[in-house]
Amino acid sequence: MITPEYCRTMAAYNKWQNDGLREIVKTMDSKALEQDRGAFFGSIIATLNHLLWGDTLWISRFDGGPAPDQTIKDSTQYMPTSATWAAQRFRVDGRITHWADHVHAIDLTGTLRWYSGSLQRDFEKPVGLCVMQLFNHQTHHRGQVHAMLTAAGEKPNDTDLPFMPES
């Protein structure tokens, strides 16, 4: 379904996009970041927090590392400030990149089993599908953040994969 190269490309894309978002967020005041902008999670920082929470949860399922203690209900408050969000975002992007750099084709086959605390039930899904979910979820919510930042007068990076800088 997917390859290690896909994982490496998407991990690099994730890092590139989040590097740009961290640069913008550090210049914005908390009021602008917390303003309800009518998005699904309301504000820029709430959406960024949910995305970071989701990334941390999914990568924990792939690398066996730590997962968030919060459920989806509390995901919008995952990090208390934009500074803590930026620091944790940097760490999780490194974790995703490390996993992608070391994943093998065999690791992307088979079934992933986990218990969802949010839905209170067990799941079994193909590993490849779950990895695609990690990257699709990122792109989906970063698109929301991109729209909110643009509406707030900011200039986020281009989001097109062919224009990603070479590593």
Rank of each mutant, 00 (worst) to 15 (best):
W58P: 11
E5C: 01
M28E: 09
I106T: 12
E166H: 11
P68I: 00
T27C: 05
I44M: 06
K125Q: 13
D63K: 11
W114K: 01
S167E: 03
N49E: 05
G128I: 00
T76W: 04
N14F: 03
L149T: 08
T109S: 12
Q88Y: 00
M132V: 11
D93E: 10
C7T: 10
M10I: 06
Q133V: 02
V131K: 10
K73F: 00
P80S: 00
R8M: 11
L21I: 15
I44V: 15
D158W: 04
F90D: 13
F90N: 09
H98M: 08
S167W: 06
N14I: 06
A86S: 15
N14H: 14
T111S: 14
M1S: 13
A86K: 09
D55N: 13
W85V: 09
S167L: 13
T109R: 14
N18P: 15
L57H: 03
I72A: 12
L33M: 14
M164W: 04
D55P: 01
K15V: 11
R89K: 09
L112Q: 10
K15N: 13
T84D: 13
A100H: 06
T109H: 10
E23L: 09
M164R: 10
Q17V: 15
T139S: 11
L33R: 12
W85H: 12
E166M: 11
G20F: 08
Q77Y: 00
V103E: 01
D36N: 15
H137K: 07
W85E: 03
D36W: 07
G42N: 10
V103Y: 02
A147K: 05
G143C: 01
V127H: 08
H141N: 10
G153E: 04
Q138L: 04
Q88A: 13
S118Q: 06
G42P: 14
I106N: 04
G143M: 05
E154W: 00
I45C: 00
M1G: 15
M148I: 07
P156A: 01
I24P: 01
D55Q: 15
S43M: 06
I106C: 04
V25C: 10
L161A: 07
D122K: 11
I96H: 07
D63A: 11
R142Y: 01
T56V: 05
I44S: 07
L134C: 09
E5R: 11
Y6G: 10
D63P: 12
Y13N: 09
